[in-house]
Structure formats: structure tokens, C-alpha cells
Amino acid sequence: MSLFPPDIEATATRIIADFTARGLMVATAESCTGGLIAGALTEIAGSSAVVDRGLVTYTNVSKTDILGVSVDTLKDFGAVSRETALEMAAGALKASQAQISVAVTGIAGPGGGSAKKPVGLVHLAASNRDGKILHREMRYGDIGRSEVRLATLRTAFEMLQDMAEA
């Protein structure tokens, strides 16, 4: 029995197989998902060939200390922003041996949202060592904390698959 819903387990299995076949490794930089992306990948046998590391950087201090996110970026744009997600993805690559990174930062709720940055807003970024960068701004809505986190995981998996094919 998996810890994750069947669709997530199936996608993680495909990612592990595909990345293994391509000789690719991944690093995650996670805020609102708290390690769920790395957790779902490592639920799959053989993931040690693919998952280099998962970095949970929940606070702004950890984002700057571990990932090198600029204090100015956090001050000017906030933790939940395109700019922060992109710097998190770049920092995960720099801090790892991976060829591809994925980063997520958002507001899972139930509180913490605002008119400008509502509950359910998540910024995701993926990058590779060839300089390709993807960004998605998702507005999942106030669907519940667990559902926002699982929706973010599904989107992150889509982005990893897109990066592998790039």
C-alpha cells in the first residue's frame, strides 16, 4: 500500500523509470509541499538512481541559507513569487549533483492568504543544467491544505516530465 494516491504513485513510477533510462537525477526544493515531491519519488523502488536530494526550505532564512535565494528577492517579491521559485530551482541545482531541479512555494492554507496572494496560489519552477527554465503560477483555490499540496505535487511531476523531454 502506497502513502500516496494511485495516480501520483503511477506518475512517480513513470518518472523514476524515465529518469533512470535517461541517466538523469533530480533535486527538489520544497516549501509548501514540505518534502512530498521527494517523498512520492522515493516511495518507488529504484528511486536512489534518480533522487539526488530533497531540500525542504520552509522559512525565508532556509531559502537564503540553503538555496541562496536573495534577501532582496524575498523582500521585493515575497516568498510566494515567480522570482523566489526560480531562485529556489537554481539553488537546488547548485547544491546538488542533479541535472534537473523542481521548486515549489505557495500558500496551502487554510490561512495566510491575501487578496493579492490567495490561499491556493503556488509558484513552481524547474530548471536544468543546460539553462532551460520552466515556471508555472497555479491558483488551485481554497480547496483545503492537503488538496493544494497534492495538486502542487501533480503539477511538479508534470514539470519534471517536461524537463526530462527537453
Rank of each mutant, 00 (worst) to 15 (best):
102 V>Q: 06
100 I>C: 11
34 G>M: 15
143 I>F: 02
96 S>G: 10
44 I>L: 03
108 A>T: 00
46 G>A: 12
143 I>K: 05
54 G>F: 03
70 S>W: 02
67 L>N: 06
27 A>T: 06
24 L>I: 09
106 G>K: 03
28 T>R: 05
50 V>F: 03
124 L>M: 12
57 T>C: 12
139 R>V: 14
139 R>N: 15
142 D>S: 14
136 R>H: 14
126 A>G: 14
116 K>Y: 01
27 A>K: 08
104 V>T: 11
70 S>M: 06
134 L>E: 15
85 A>V: 02
119 V>M: 14
115 A>K: 10
79 A>L: 02
120 G>Y: 04
87 E>D: 08
83 E>G: 10
132 K>P: 01
118 P>G: 13
143 I>R: 04
118 P>N: 10
109 G>R: 00
49 A>M: 13
77 F>P: 06
65 D>N: 12
49 A>C: 11
124 L>H: 10
131 G>I: 03
118 P>E: 10
87 E>F: 07
97 Q>K: 14
122 V>H: 07
32 C>F: 11
85 A>M: 05
83 E>W: 08
63 K>P: 05
46 G>I: 15
28 T>Y: 05
77 F>C: 13
57 T>R: 08
65 D>R: 11
34 G>V: 08
138 M>Y: 07
130 D>I: 04
129 R>L: 14
119 V>Q: 10
111 G>K: 00
100 I>N: 09
128 N>C: 14
78 G>A: 10
140 Y>D: 05
123 H>T: 01
41 L>D: 06
64 T>E: 07
107 I>T: 00
113 G>P: 12
51 V>Q: 01
107 I>C: 13
109 G>D: 00
39 G>A: 13
68 G>P: 03
106 G>A: 09
136 R>L: 09
141 G>F: 00
124 L>W: 10
129 R>D: 06
24 L>T: 01
25 M>D: 00
101 S>I: 04
127 S>E: 12
128 N>D: 15
110 P>C: 13
141 G>S: 12
77 F>Q: 04
114 S>M: 14
61 V>P: 00
33 T>R: 08
83 E>H: 13
83 E>L: 05
63 K>L: 06
91 G>C: 05
84 T>R: 03
78 G>S: 09
128 N>S: 14
112 G>K: 00
85 A>I: 01
66 I>Q: 09
37 I>C: 07
108 A>F: 09
117 K>H: 11
132 K>Y: 00
61 V>W: 01
79 A>T: 05
56 V>L: 11
117 K>D: 10
146 S>F: 13
61 V>N: 05
81 S>P: 04
144 G>V: 13
124 L>G: 06
111 G>E: 08
109 G>Q: 00
51 V>H: 01
35 G>P: 07
105 T>V: 04
28 T>S: 14
62 S>C: 07
75 K>N: 13
25 M>V: 14
89 A>F: 02
